[in-house]
């Protein structure tokens, strides 16, 4: 329990750091982006919204930084992330709420599948040293060196296009209404196959490799020799003794690199125009929609923190040594 409390405290601290960072970034923006928005949308913007944007950008000259900071927190705790410039007058929270499920569905699920599949293959490669799997390692290295977004472009060029089963963009058939029904779900799955495969192909090899290396390292531990000496079946030694222990560092490695992985996978959304956070971020960057960018960054960070906490729980369940009796 103590372990979890410690971790939670750390993640809260990180969340605070990210939010504070988020508070300072817009203050670096040159000029007065709000003023130009107001003048573009003369009369269509409410006084409340202007106020909220001013807090976000720290444009209120009457407040010192500390007051601005408190004000910013107050606004954040009400779920007010400002107004999106691109989707004006929609609030940032609404835009994010619309795209978050898509990202969780695509990036979240494929990252987990990639980890599980890669780990399983790594177990095989590490246990049977010198088998054909070792020969595949250079190829997987090459695949993992390809930027996700470029692989996505190639996948579209090869598999998508007019008349193909795989759509080249979007998250579902235009014209359908998002709902859990027999029209929408198959369409959503159909649209996610290609981006998911792209993420899988390029992210899996890292897990194969690290699991293989951990298996090789663990194979020379004493308890593996003991397991062999006990005459246990090959399968039991490989899985219950070697893989079970090799998994631990891989899980903590997974937690640590989530931030990197999620950053990369978001780009796949851009290539496939997938309606998730990555694509939204891309559009926000193009339109200089600072409130939306900030909001997305905040949400991504918090999602990664939650995922990290979940990975920690998994680690806790897997390693009895972290469980204090």
């Amino acid at each position: 329990m103590r372990f979890l409390l410690q971790r939670t405290a750390f993640y809260l601290f990180t969340a605070w750091a990210a939010i504070t960072l988020n508070f300072f970034i817009p203050r670096l923006v040159p000029g007065d982006p709000v003023q130009s928005l107001i003048s573009r949308n003369q009369g269509r913007i409410s006084a409340d919204a202007i106020e909220s944007l001013r807090v976000l950008f720290g444009l209120d000259a009457n407040e010192n930084v500390w007051e601005q900071y408190l004000h910013y927190w107050g606004q954040l705790l009400h779920g007010d992330l400002g107004l999106s410039f691109t989707f004006f007058p929609a609030p940032v929270s609404t835009v994010i709420g619309d795209s978050l499920p898509w990202t969780v569905g695509l990036v979240g699920i494929t990252t987990i599948i990639s980890f599980l599949l890669g780990t399983a293959l790594g177990v095989g490669a590490g246990w049977r040293r010198g088998s054909w799997v070792d020969g595949l390692l250079p190829a997987t290295t090459f695949l993992s060196s390809i930027p996700y977004f470029w692989l996505g472009l190639v996948a579209i060029a090869l598999f998508a296009g007019p008349g193909s089963f795989f759509p080249s963009s979007g998250g579902y058939e235009p014209g359908l209404v998002p709902a859990f029904d027999q029209y929408f779900i198959p369409s959503a799955i159909q649209h996610s196959i290609l981006p998911a495969a792209t993420i899988l192909v390029s992210s899996m090899s890292g897990w194969i490799l690290s699991m293989r290396n951990m298996m090789v390292t663990v194979s020379s531990e004493d308890y593996i020799t003991v397991a062999h000496a006990k005459g246990l079946s090959e399968r039991r030694v490989a899985l219950s003794y070697a893989a079970r222990n090799a998994l631990l560092p891989n899980v903590s490695g997974f937690a640590l690199s989530l931030g990197f992985i999620v950053g990369g996978t978001l780009l796949v959304e851009i290539v496939f125009s997938y309606p998730g956070l990555g694509y939204q971020l891309f559009q926000a960057v193009g339109a200089k929609d600072y409130p939306l960018m900030q909001g997305i960054f905040l949400i991504i960070t918090i999602s990664v923190l939650v995922a990290n906490l979940l990975a920690d729980v998994a680690y806790l369940l897997l390693d009895p040594r972290t469980r204090k009796s």
Partner: peptide, 19 residues
């Protein structure tokens, strides 16, 4: 193995599977 010849290893620390 083990049924006929068993072994007690050097490192008591690492001979048992920690998990």
């Amino acid at each position: 193995r083990w049924a006929e010849t068993s072994i007690v290893f050097q490192g008591a620390m690492n001979s048992l599977n920690p998990v």
